[in-house]
């Protein structure tokens, strides 16, 4: 079995480490109640996906994909794949834009509910829902 050679192990350990980081992020997102902490968890999750992409573009012994100034492409030199770099570079900036959108939502939530804890918000939501429901029910019953 090629699964148990040391070459296989060291060739794959980086993917497993991404999985560990990514799952840490996911755990923060689904296991913690604080909204700001959830955003941080989401960022960790996101960054580990970026690492995964970049690591796939890496060639051992390769160099950064920037040509010498004379602009000649030398097939002897191994350049790491620039395409994942392009994708991730823009994804980082889009990521910060969406993060700021999330943070803005948190600020609005805080102003409405006076809390950024998921549990407290759910409690408030429940009471609001029940009181509205009760009003409808009591209006309906006499008929």
């Amino acid at each position: 079995m090629h699964f148990f050679t040391s070459e296989f192990f060291f060739g794959h350990i980086n993917y497993w480490l991404f999985i560990v980081l990514m799952m840490t992020g996911l755990y923060i997102v689904i296991g913690k109640g604080n909204l700001v902490k959830k955003i941080v968890g989401l960022n960790i999750f996101q960054t580990s996906v970026f690492m995964f992409y970049i690591s796939m573009g890496k060639i051992s012994g390769g160099t950064a994909p920037i040509f010498p100034l004379d602009g000649k492409y030398d097939p002897e030199i191994a350049y790491s794949n620039p395409l994942p770099h392009v994708l991730i570079l823009t994804a980082i900036v889009v990521g910060i834009a969406t993060t700021s959108l999330g943070l803005a939502l948190i600020i609005r939530i805080r102003e409405e509910y006076h809390s950024i804890e998921e549990e407290e918000i759910t409690v408030i939501e429940d009471t609001v829902f029940r009181s509205e429901h009760l009003v409808v029910a009591s209006q309906g019953e006499p008929l």
């Binding site: 700001v36 955003i39 941080v40 960022n43 960054t47 970026f50 970049i54 690591s55 573009g57 890496k58 390769g62 160099t63 950064a64 994909p65 920037i66 350049y79 790491s80 994942p84 770099h85 991730i88 570079l89 980082i92 900036v93 990521g95 910060i96 993060t99 700021s100 943070l103 948190i106 600020i107 805080r110 950024i116």
Partner: peptide, 29 residues
């Protein structure tokens, strides 16, 4: 991993802007 452009962006965005924005959120929450 040779991704110098990406590293540049990550350092500027992650360690710069996003920290400021998160601290701003903390000040408001």
């Amino acid at each position: 991993w040779d991704a110098v452009d990406v590293a540049f962006t990550e350092a500027a965005v992650g360690a710069g802007i996003s920290t400021v924005l998160m601290l701003g959120t903390l000040a408001l929450t």
